[in-house]
Design a protein around this nucleic acid. Structure first.
Length: 529
RNA sequence: GAGCCCGUAGCUCAGCGGUAGAGCAUCUGACUUUUAAUCAGGUGGUCGUGGGUUCGAUCCCCACCGGGCUCACCA
């Protein structure tokens, strides 16, 4: 039915995931690859924790995979590959009990005790963190551990091939190294049987038929070891190439910092008789000043932060947009991504079949694009939250129903989620900047009057009636003018120079709550305290 | 030294060959009592420079200028 039509549209779609998917399609030609599926891979170095870049790489790869599915019936798989056999070089500064790690430096991550004490090893711990991170977003992937691949012999054939083509592999790497490294370089890093450490030891002999190397150990002795079965790990660029070959990876993207590595690893992969995967180089993220984001500087934005103040879909949209452009990734970009997402969601309903394939929400959600709820922007919610001075969802919803009478938290789940995010934004960003001041003598008298007046009002008093009373209270006290009266209310009670219409605000905020707010302020207990 | 990205309204950016756009900022008006919100409208750009391709270029190609980043140790 519509499948073939959509396939034609997909073949012509200009969105970048389709461009990428067509590269994969051209690569595999008419049928499926011998392994029966197309393999996408994302890499992960488990000496650190998953971060916003990890998310970006997986979500973007998933978008390409999704586009590929629209183009072809060939099955696809996505490996999230953890390089957990890597030797730990330095003790990370963000872990507990660092002293327990220090004696194990140089060992594979999966052979180092878990400093958190919750998993079999440090590597296993971080792998679990990666999986929990990915699962949180519902990514469809298969976790792969380098340690397991090496030990189970899954890389053995490819490792023997590296041994066989040793000289050719070396010839690619050596020119890129400094003279001191060049002297001792070997793509094979033997795992020392005595110490368990991954060694950068010079290889003095090789036996291709036996599948072994002889290296000079730290104590000067010569040791012969198989290159297979997890007895040797490969140095990183050779490792990447070997993995591509051994697993027959069809697609892997990477940051522009790895451009040279991709070139080298591709050459090595070819030497091994493999075909390097289709690649995509994405730009790195910058901070608000256009400077490189680095974990040590702490100028980056974390996934946690983003998800506190906005939805995962908005983050996915940020990753979808212009992946080849160095984009500033900092706090202030969040609201716009949310509103752009809402706009695109609304547009999707009206899009024809072709336009839908170009709409980022198609790439974010696939077939399950949720219905738009419309009409209220995140920018408006942020303003409302700060103007209303509230962390109460019901108060915000009170205002929202003035704009969209039919909407409720149950009928508009996206909106309700945004209400929560807006409140978090108010609580963490706006509220700390509030400055409450003490009332003057005249203002104090007027505030006491207002509290008493509110108390005397019937519970069913309308917003308009309350507004009139607030107005009357202001008029019967010797204040400069009414403008000053309202200003004083905002400054004393809400800690800001501007605020909402008091009548409707009190009606929603609650008469009793308002009285308490006044009494607290008069007693010197501001909301900030 | 090698490579990548960017240069469009005051700010942040969209614009993928056919008479320059959005948000914010600013200005005016409306919402019959302060303010904010909201709504309507206005101001505002030689699209970095110079060539080329084209009937036509912000958009494609080349060069240049300017800004920034990455790799040149390890992964």
């Amino acid at each position: 039915m519509s499948g073939s039509v959509d396939r034609e549209l997909a073949a012509a779609a200009r969105a970048w995931p389709f461009e990428e998917a067509r590269k994969v399609l051209a690569r595999i030609g008419a049928g499926a690859p011998a392994k029966g599926h197309v393999l996408f891979e994302t890499g992960y170095g488990p000496s650190g924790l998953p971060h916003i870049g990890t998310f970006g790489e997986v979500v973007r790869t998933t978008m390409v995979r999704r586009a590929f599915r629209a183009l072809s019936d060939v099955p696809t798989r996505l490996y999230a590959f953890s390089d957990d056999m890597d030797g730990l070089r330095r003790v990370p500064d963000n872990i507990p009990n660092p002293e327990r790690i220090t004696p194990h430096l140089g060992k594979p991550l999966t052979a180092i005790p878990d400093p958190f004490g919750t998993h079999e090893s440090f590597g296993h711990h971080n792998n679990a963190r990666l999986r929990a991170f990915l699962d949180r977003f519902g990514f469809d992937y298969e976790f792969q551990s380098a340690t397991e691949c090496y030990r189970a012999g899954r890389f053995d054939a490819a490792l023997r091939r590296v041994l066989e083509r040793y000289d050719d592999v070396i010839a690619v790497i050596l020119p890129t190294l400094g003279p001191e490294r060049r002297a001792t370089y070997s793509p094979f890093l033997p795992v020392c049987a005595k110490t368990g450490r991954v060694l950068q030891a010079p290889v003095v002999a090789r036996d291709v038929d036996a599948g072994t190397i002889v290296y000079r150990d730290e104590d000067g002795s010569l040791v012969e070891t198989p290159v297979t079965g997890g007895r040797c790990k490969l140095q990183w660029k050779a490792d990447w190439a070997m993995r591509w070959h051994a697993l027959d990876v069809d697609y892997e993207m990477s940051g522009k910092d790895l451009i040279d590595s991709v070139k080298l690893s591709s050459r090595i992969c070819t030497i091994l008789g493999g075909r390097p995967p289709e690649g995509f180089t994405y730009e790195l993220f910058l901070d608000e000043n256009g400077e490189k984001i680095s974990k040590s500087k702490g100028n980056g934005l974390s996934v946690e932060q983003w998800l506190t103040y906005a939805t995962p879909e908005s983050l996915a949209l940020f990753m979808y947009n212009a992946p080849r452009k160095a984009k500033k990734l900092f706090f202030d970009v969040i609201p716009r991504q949310v509103d752009d997402y809402l706009d695109l969601l609304a547009k999707y309903d009206k899009d024809d079949r072709a336009a839908r394939l170009e709409n980022p929400v198609w790439h974010i959600h696939g077939a399950d694009v949720p219905a738009a709820e419309g009409h209220v922007t995140f920018g408006l919610l942020l303003n409302l939250a700060s103007v209303c001075n509230t962390e109460d969802r019901a108060v915000l919803w009170g205002f929202i129903t003035r704009y969209v009478p039919a909407a409720t938290p149950a009928s508009a789940p996206i909106l309700d989620a945004l209400v929560g995010h807006a409140i978090a934004y108010y609580r963490d960003v706006v509220k700390p900047e509030k400055h409450y001041r003490a009332p003057s003598a005249a203002e104090r008298a007027a505030l006491e009057d207002l509290a008493a007046t509110l108390e005397a009002l019937p519970p069913e008093a309308s917003a308009e009636a309350i507004q009139n009373e607030v107005y009357e209270v202001g008029k019967r006290h010797p204040l400069e003018n009414l403008r000053a009266w309202f200003k004083a209310l905002y400054e004393v009670l809400l800690g800001q120079t501007e605020g909402p219409r008091m009548g409707s605000f009190i009606a929603l905020y609650g008469k009793r709550e308002m009285i308490a707010l006044i009494r607290d302020a008069l007693a010197g207990r501001s909301a900030a305290a």
